[in-house]
Design a protein around this nucleic acid. Structure first.
Length: 210
DNA sequence: CAAACGATTTTCT
DNA sequence: GAAAATCGTTTGG
């Protein structure tokens, strides 16, 4: 269809996020383009690594057992909001809230490949030369895109933060599924293959056990 | 109100 | 490869 030419640069609709299979959403996010546009600073990167967090039944999730706190509250919203929080007192981690309201599922975005506004990203990261670690790793990409904890609860339907489908297709064979990073405390749930990344992409974070 | 901890990154050896 | 840096959130008294 010719219409596809016009649809190929679309902001993902709420229906993308409200699906009930968080693992599916995590995989589908690979190849999509995360855009931030704060105060005229336009930056964009293709998502190359994600992790699924399956809420109440997932020991690795902040919302395990339907735990509700001021921090986790945003995960109980309907899919399509940003969940951003601070880890290790230093790093801001960007997550996408999925599923319907009252079901606290989320996808952590762990790495993107920079596409636009690379100069702005390097400025934010205080880097002189372009290296993969500009945006490889959840804390790094958040800093590069200018995302901080104050953005938690922001809508992913725009205008400040949104995710586009630019028609990039990642073939199933290009997607690797492995265990998540930094969740050893989650016991048996730490073994779940909930981390997904694009094979051979140099912006995928090192993590542990690659 | 005090204390422990962590979906990490960087730096140094 | 190992360790330090660093602070908001959560939890317990």
């Amino acid at each position: 269809m010719f219409a596809n030419l016009y649809l190929s640069n679309m902001i993902l609709p709420a229906s993308f996020y409200t699906r009930k299979d968080v693992v599916r959403v995590a995989k589908d996010l690979l190849g999509k383009v995360l855009v931030t546009n704060f105060e005229g600073q336009y930056t964009a990167g293709m998502i190359v690594e994600t992790e699924a967090y399956a809420g109440a039944s997932d020991k690795a999730s902040h919302a395990f057992g339907n735990r509700r706190t001021r921090r986790t509250e945003v995960m109980y919203r309907e899919g399509g909001a940003a969940y951003v929080y601070l880890i290790y007192g230093i790093h801001h981690l960007f997550n996408v809230v999925t599923h319907l309201a009252e079901v606290p599922h989320a996808v952590l975005v762990r790495a993107v490949e920079p596409l636009e506004g690379i100069d702005i990203m390097m400025q934010r990261r205080r880097m002189e030369v372009l290296k993969p670690n500009l945006t490889s790793g959840p804390g790094a990409l958040s800093q590069a895109l200018g995302i901080y904890t104050k953005h938690t609860g922001y809508s992913l339907l725009g205008p400040d933060i949104y995710i586009e489908d630019r028609g990039i297709k990642i073939k199933p064979k290009e997607i690797a599924a492995v265990t998540r990073v930094g969740v050893a405390y989650a016991q048996e749930d730490a073994l779940l293959p909930y981390r997904f990344y694009v094979r051979d992409n140099k912006y995928v974070s090192k993590g542990k056990g690659l």
